[in-house]
Amino acid sequence: MNINKLLEKKDWHYDVYQENNNIILSVPIPKPAPGFDVIYTLNEYEKEKYLQIGIKALEERIQDMNVNYYDYQMNSWR
């Protein structure tokens, strides 16, 4: 059973949530149609930095997810 705990959210920019011992970043992208949530599980270094300084630690990752979304897990909005 997975328990998701929302840690942080900025509508239409990102969601950060905890699932078990992982921190997961979700970035919504409207294109390609019908739109997707791009999903990434933080590695240990990213997780530590996020816990220390917050979302600022993930700015480059979020930018990469918006540009190179095919390199990540994608969940369709349909």
Rank of each mutant, 00 (worst) to 15 (best):
T41A: 07
K47F: 02
N21L: 12
Q73C: 02
F36Y: 15
N21H: 11
M65H: 06
K49T: 15
K10M: 03
N66W: 01
E48M: 09
Y40A: 14
P30K: 14
K49P: 05
K49R: 12
E48A: 07
N20Y: 14
V67F: 14
L25N: 06
F36G: 10
E59C: 07
Y14K: 12
P34R: 13
K47G: 00
L51V: 05
Q52H: 05
E46H: 06
P28Q: 09
M1T: 13
E48K: 03
W77N: 14
K31N: 14
Q73K: 07
L7C: 10
Y50E: 03
V38M: 05
Y70W: 07
N75P: 00
P34I: 14
R61Y: 00
K9T: 07
D15Q: 11
N20M: 12
H13M: 06
W77V: 13
A57V: 03
T41R: 08
N2C: 14
Y70L: 12
Y40C: 09
A57R: 00
E46L: 04
E60L: 12
V67P: 01
I55C: 08
E46N: 11
Y50N: 02
E44A: 09
E59T: 14
E46Y: 03
V67I: 15
V67M: 10
N43I: 00
A33K: 13
L51A: 04
I3K: 03
I55H: 06
I29Q: 07
Y45V: 03
Y69G: 02
Y50S: 03
I62S: 07
S76Q: 10
Y45T: 10
L7D: 10
K31R: 15
K56N: 14
T41C: 03
D15R: 12
G54V: 01
K5F: 13
Y69T: 05
G35A: 10
I23N: 13
Y72S: 07
Q73W: 02
A33E: 13
K56V: 15
Y70R: 11
P32E: 15
E19Y: 11
M1I: 12
E44D: 14
L58W: 00
Y72W: 08
D15F: 13
I53E: 06
L6E: 09
D64C: 02
V38G: 02
N43E: 10
